[in-house]
Simulated scan of single mutants.
Amino acid sequence: MRILVDADACPVKDEVYRVAQRHGVSVAIVSNQRLRVPPLPFVERIVVSDSFDAADDWIAEAAGPRAVVVTADILLADRALKNGAVVLSSNGKPFTTASIGGAIAVRAIMADLRAGGEQLGGPAPYSKQDRSRFLSALDDALVRLKRAG
């Protein structure tokens, strides 16, 4: 099992390390730039080129049925799901094959509105409840993968 983190803007890297250590799971921190990672034997830093979607491409290729992908990127979530991975957003909400189509559609609508000049607010501030929900969801996902063998 492995946790793959789309790390450039991920607010829960420390939480990933804690849960991964408790479960004995390796972590790949994937980014376009060199990020600080703790000197832990189960954490690997992957720095990809700065080309568009290079981190997403690396994660999508590495994702599979024994992986948990942590990302806020809906299109990456879709690619990882198609490869059989469990996919979680940083607020703990899972992306699933049942929900991803709707998420992609909303993303497209929002992009069209922004392109048309609409002033849209950004995401809600990250909260303690989001962090707690993420910790619980990641723990649950790893337990399910362990049970599945």
Rank of each mutant, 00 (worst) to 15 (best):
residue 90 S to M: 13
residue 102 G to K: 00
residue 97 T to S: 12
residue 114 R to C: 10
residue 111 A to R: 08
residue 101 G to I: 08
residue 105 A to S: 11
residue 52 F to G: 15
residue 128 K to D: 09
residue 96 T to L: 05
residue 83 N to A: 15
residue 107 R to L: 08
residue 53 D to S: 15
residue 117 G to V: 04
residue 58 W to G: 15
residue 91 N to M: 07
residue 79 R to S: 12
residue 72 A to I: 01
residue 86 V to G: 08
residue 120 L to S: 04
residue 98 A to P: 09
residue 78 D to Y: 02
residue 123 P to I: 00
residue 68 V to Y: 12
residue 109 I to W: 05
residue 99 S to G: 13
residue 107 R to W: 03
residue 82 K to W: 06
residue 116 G to C: 07
residue 115 A to Q: 09
residue 104 I to M: 06
residue 60 A to Q: 01
residue 119 Q to Y: 05
residue 68 V to R: 02
residue 99 S to Y: 00
residue 97 T to I: 11
residue 108 A to I: 04
residue 72 A to S: 15
residue 72 A to P: 04
residue 73 D to V: 03
residue 97 T to F: 14
residue 120 L to N: 05
residue 65 P to W: 02
residue 128 K to Q: 12
residue 122 G to K: 00
residue 60 A to I: 11
residue 61 E to L: 12
residue 98 A to E: 11
residue 64 G to Q: 07
residue 102 G to W: 00
residue 81 L to C: 13
residue 65 P to T: 04
residue 91 N to C: 12
residue 67 A to H: 07
residue 83 N to H: 12
residue 76 L to W: 04
residue 124 A to I: 01
residue 57 D to N: 14
residue 96 T to P: 14
residue 134 F to R: 01
residue 129 Q to C: 12
residue 73 D to F: 06
residue 98 A to M: 06
residue 90 S to V: 00
residue 110 M to I: 14
residue 84 G to H: 02
residue 129 Q to T: 11
residue 81 L to P: 12
residue 101 G to F: 06
residue 62 A to E: 09
residue 104 I to F: 00
residue 106 V to K: 04
residue 77 A to Y: 02
residue 111 A to P: 10
residue 67 A to F: 04
residue 93 K to H: 11
residue 80 A to V: 03
residue 125 P to G: 07
residue 119 Q to H: 10
residue 97 T to G: 15
residue 130 D to S: 07
residue 77 A to R: 01
residue 114 R to E: 03
residue 75 L to S: 13
residue 99 S to M: 03
residue 103 A to H: 07
residue 124 A to T: 03
residue 119 Q to C: 10
residue 111 A to K: 05
residue 75 L to R: 09
residue 62 A to C: 14
residue 125 P to K: 01
residue 114 R to F: 09
residue 125 P to E: 04
residue 54 A to I: 02
residue 54 A to M: 04
residue 117 G to I: 00
residue 83 N to K: 10
residue 114 R to D: 09
residue 111 A to L: 10
residue 61 E to S: 12
residue 99 S to K: 08
residue 132 S to H: 10
residue 102 G to R: 02
residue 95 F to Q: 01
residue 132 S to I: 10
residue 135 L to W: 06
residue 120 L to H: 01
residue 127 S to L: 03
residue 92 G to W: 01
residue 98 A to V: 06
residue 95 F to T: 04
residue 127 S to G: 05
